[in-house]
Design a binder for these strands. Structure first.
Length: 877
RNA sequence: GGGCAGUUAGCUCAGAGGGAGAGCGCUUCCUUGACACGGAAGAGGUCGUAGGUUCGAUUCCUAUACUGCCCA
């Protein structure tokens, strides 16, 4: 075995080994409790990024632990067709080839898109395997699979029949670049420096003007009224009169509506019902015409007269110029306001009057709200995200689900060309359900991608069929996802599940943060600050990446990607690798049947076994609470600081000694503890743990299916822990003194230990071997009656004094300074403790064990202080 | 405007009602028979500010400042 762990030589081999042994597949063992996670499906738009790596790693950790705990685990993988995003990518690719999708036609375009999907699906599968994910490939799903499409259709048809899906002409968010409607949550509002244009609209009767303020002058061509507040004294007399719209020359009324804010601008606003959601509502209240002045690409249309064909922003400039020349422009003020941008294309969203399909949300949301008020609610981890979810669902608005795209689930609605009736059904109809005409055409639009994603937890299980998987693995146990998709996804899964399965889709929702770059900026393609998981794996190995990202932040908090942390994780793995090398190098022909812990365990054995039990309990508990960082930290500290730094060193004593029984026990403890460590680490770092485990004495085919460690009652030795703590304190003190006077370990010195009580004396005698081993003394003398006249360095530990006679090496002045400093800190401690203990309220009100601890501390500090004082006096005399 | 996070060692971050922690960096020493991706010993913080609750607050509460995110 090399001194440095080489992930490349291990990872692909081990993954193949797991696959060959079919270890990822759900066992379907009816005697085991099922545990299921359905993977949030990555988009087939491209490759996986660091956010996926984080999300999936957390899932794999849970799945691997549960599998080892004996659950029948199912981790179901899949991918999302990602309508707009994928179509945009394919169109972009075609554009580079000089092809327009309309030239190809719908069928041919979809064929190209399926090919794109296949291409990226295989890349994503490759990435899954590189990251070590234990997913059940036999159950992989895609949102546009036949079965899932059937589920989508079923949900659409049922909601339509229940009156919860409707079609209508409303203002929607229009993406003029992607040329499709998008939903409210796909709009990102950004503060933009714009302008407030004050315009002068002439009264038709020639009696003057009314001043209106607008941020969007180009829509004036679609104005159908000017509105003022009914109470606004300034304009009371004008209500009912008309103005003549500049440029357009149309005569439109001045109306009164509460919606107008008299404080804003001039207190009079232009009303453009076809281009603003508020104006749309005003228009409906006042029966105003709706004049759409733009086309689907954001260019002015034929109703914009001479501006026809001009881009909306270009038109804005031109109109202002024209208005100014005609004397209709009063002033332009700088104005910062928030402007909606498309999440997909980045284009400024155009509020646009259009006929679309909607889901009526209130009745669906109501069930979800009720659920959260019940005992059976979906548990969010961390808890604070529940409020976010509830607030959103309580204020939900209808969901625009139609998209003017080709890639996606086509809306199962047929329009009759004769009578106009819409036929919605599970099977493709051949005639109109009302007039029987066969002159029917399917709706051109497809559904919002999230419509199918919303069914993911059960559509992947075969719903609406009553499958065995559905009854066994649904509801899922856990959903792991980022806080950025609580609204578009988590919320929608919950209300759809409640409506269609009558159950919540999952029990727990674990929310993690985003992966940011080293400077804390969100990783994104456009900024080019993303880190490719495969590059990380190539440099450091998958285990390193997994450990770093899964333990790198507190639950729910964003994670800053730093290469130094990656190095530290890599070093940790290397440490485990080398500790294992040590164990393996000292086994000779020691086999799994030689492991025997029933014999006499020495103090170090007892100590490490006790600490192992505590670690097992702690790590298991933390993982079950989804505190990945805490579990990882506990393992790191136990392995590095206790197992490697101390136990392995102590073990050398018997391994290199002559006592064959002691040797056997030590080998047993080393094998046993390392084996348990590897099991606890396995969910975090599956590859290296499998590799080592296979080389260690072991039983079973793979560590993947080895039993998760459990607390063992008989391996609890509190006295051994107390003793080892004392020995470590002594050893550290001696090292400290040696460093202080520059006496390396290689140089033998006399060491005196003067315990001040019987118990400590006994402990010291029993621990002599460890102290000798670690301190390299010429002579080690332990006795209560030791007195030395030579110049010596001293240290105090609990219940004893350590003396190193180092005549000639000691700088007395320096030593006096050091002791004074120590005295000062001891004084401070004594003062603090005594202040506490002299407070009667503390004695009365603090818990007994706390008071007891403080008393112990006081005693310890006082004793130590006396020793330091005495020593100082001796040196200064 | 509303909500939520964060503010702790030079940097990045854990933590917990009762003696301030880690990683990286820094200083000194050590190539000792698992590991220099290592070992040993150190230096370094009035835990954003002001109040309050409590025997006790860096930890809980309130206010406030700054930073970030979400919603309108």
């Amino acid at each position: 075995m090399p001194t440095k762990y080489d992930p490349k030589s291990v990872e692909s081999k081990r993954y193949q080994f797991w696959l060959d042994n079919d270890l990822f597949k759900a066992s379907e063992d009816q005697n085991s409790e099922p545990f299921c996670i359905v993977m949030p499906p990555p988009n087939v738009t491209g490759m996986l990024h660091m956010g996926h790596a984080l999300d999936f790693t957390l899932q794999d950790i849970l799945i691997r632990m549960k599998r080892m705990q004996g659950y029948d685990t199912l981790w179901l993988p899949g991918m999302d067709h990602a309508g707009i995003a994928t179509q945009a990518k394919v169109e972009e690719k075609l554009r580079k080839e000089g092809i327009n999708r309309h030239d190809l036609g719908r069928e041919a375009f979809l064929e190209k898109t399926w090919a794109w999907k296949e291409h990226f699906a295989s890349i994503i599968r490759e990435q899954w395997s590189k990251m070590g994910f234990s997913i059940d490939y036999s159950r992989e799903r895609f949102t546009m699979d036949e079965g899932l499409s059937r589920a989508v259709r079923k949900v659409f048809v049922d909601l339509y029949n229940k009156g919860l899906i409707y079609r209508g002409k409303y203002i929607i968010n229009w993406d003029p670049v992607a040329r499709t409607a998008i939903s409210d949550i796909e709009v990102i509002y950004k503060e933009v420096k714009g302008a407030l244009y004050h315009l002068r609209y002439p009264l038709s009767d020639g009696s003057g003007f009314i001043e209106v303020a607008t941020t969007r002058p180009e829509t004036m061509l679609g104005d159908t009224a000017v509105a003022v507040h009914p109470e606004d004294e300034r304009y009371k007399d004008l209500i009912g009169k008309t103005i003549t719209l500049p440029i357009a020359g149309r005569e439109i009324p001045i109306i009164a509506d509460d919606y107008v804010d008299p404080e804003f601008g001039s207190g009079a606003v232009k009303i453009t019902p076809a281009h603003d959601p508020n104006d749309f509502e005003v228009g409906k209240r006042h029966n105003l015409p709706q004049i759409l002045v733009m086309d689907e690409s954001g260019k002015m249309n034929e109703l914009a007269s001479k501006y026809q064909g001009m881009d909306r922003f270009e038109c804005r400039k031109q109109i202002i110029k024209d208005l100014e020349e005609a004397g209709y422009l009063i002033k332009i003020e700088e104005h910062v306001h928030s402007v909606g941008h498309s999440e997909r294309s980045g284009a400024v969203v155009e509020p646009y009057l259009s006929t679309q399909w909607f889901v009526k949300m209130k009745p669906l949301a109501e069930k979800a709200i009720q659920l959260q008020k019940s005992e059976d609610k979906v548990r969010f981890v961390p808890e604070r995200f529940e409020k976010l979810y509830v607030d959103w669902i309580e204020n939900i608005r209808d969901w625009c689900i139609s998209r003017q795209l080709w890639w996606g689930h086509r809306i199962p609605a047929w329009h009759c060309k004769n009578c106009g009736e819409i036929t919605v059904s599970m099977e493709d109809p051949s005639s109109c359900s009302k007039c029987g005409s066969s002159n029917i055409l399917q709706d051109e639009d497809v559904l919002d991608t999230w419509f199918s994603s919303a069914l993911w937890p059960f559509s992947t299980m075969g719903w609406p069929e009553k499958t065995a998987d559905l009854s066994r693995y649904y509801p899922n146990n856990v959903l792991v996802t980022g806080h950025d998709i609580i609204y578009p996804w988590v919320a929608r899964m919950i209300f759809t599940a409640l409506e269609f399965t009558g159950e919540k889709p999952f029990k727990d929702v674990i929310i993690h943060g985003l992966v940011r770059d080293a400077e804390g900026i969100k990783m994104s393609k456009s900024l080019g600050n993303g880190v490719d998981p495969l590059e990380v794996i190539d440099q450091y190995g998958a285990d390193t990446m997994r450990f770093m990202i899964s333990t790198g932040s507190t639950p729910g908090q964003d994670l800053r990607f730093r290469w130094e942390r990656l190095e530290s994780a890599r070093n940790f793995i290397n440490k485990i690798w080398n500790a294992s090398r040590f164990v393996l190098m000292n086994l000779d022909d020691f086999g799994v049947n030689d492991i025997d812990l029933s014999g006499s365990l020495n103090t170090a054995d007892q100590w490490i076994l006790t600490r192992l039990q505590e670690t097992i309990n702690y790590v298991t508990h933390q993982l079950e609470e989804y505190h990945f960082n805490e579990a990882g930290k506990a393992l790191y500290e136990f392995i590095w600081d206790e197992f490697c730094d101390w136990y392995i060193e102590f073990a050398k004593l018997s391994l290199y000694g002559d006592d064959s029984n002691a040797k056997k026990t030590t080998r047993s403890v080393l094998c046993y503890v390392l084996d348990r460590i590897l099991r606890l680490l396995h969910p975090f770092m599956p590859f290296v743990t499998e590799e080592i485990w296979q080389n260690l004495p072991h039983e079973g085919k793979s560590i993947m299916i080895a039993k998760w460690p459990e607390f063992v009652e008989r391996f609890q030795f509190p006295e051994a822990v107390e003793q080892m703590n004392l020995y470590m304190e002594v050893i550290r003190s001696v090292r400290n003194i040696r460093a202080e006077v520059n006496v390396p370990l290689s140089k033998k010195v006399n060491i005196f230990i003067r315990p001040d009580n019987e118990k400590t004396l006994n402990y010291m005698r029993r621990g002599e071997m460890w102290i000798r081993q670690q301190c390299n003394p010429e002579n080690l003398i332990i006795g209560s009656d030791i007195s030395i006249s030579e110049k010596a360095m001293t240290a105090v530990v609990t219940g004893a004094e350590i003396l190193l006679p180092l005549a000639g090496l000691i700088d007395i002045d320096q030593e006096v300074e050091r002791l004074k400093k120590e005295l000062k800190t001891l004084n401070a401690e004594v003062e603090r403790v005594q202040k506490k203990l002299s407070n009667q309220e503390f004695i009365n009100k603090a818990p007994a064990h706390v008071v007891e601890e403080e008393r112990k501390k006081e005693k310890d500090y006082l004793e130590k202080r006396e020793k330091v004082k005495a020593r100082l006096a001796q040196l200064q005399s």
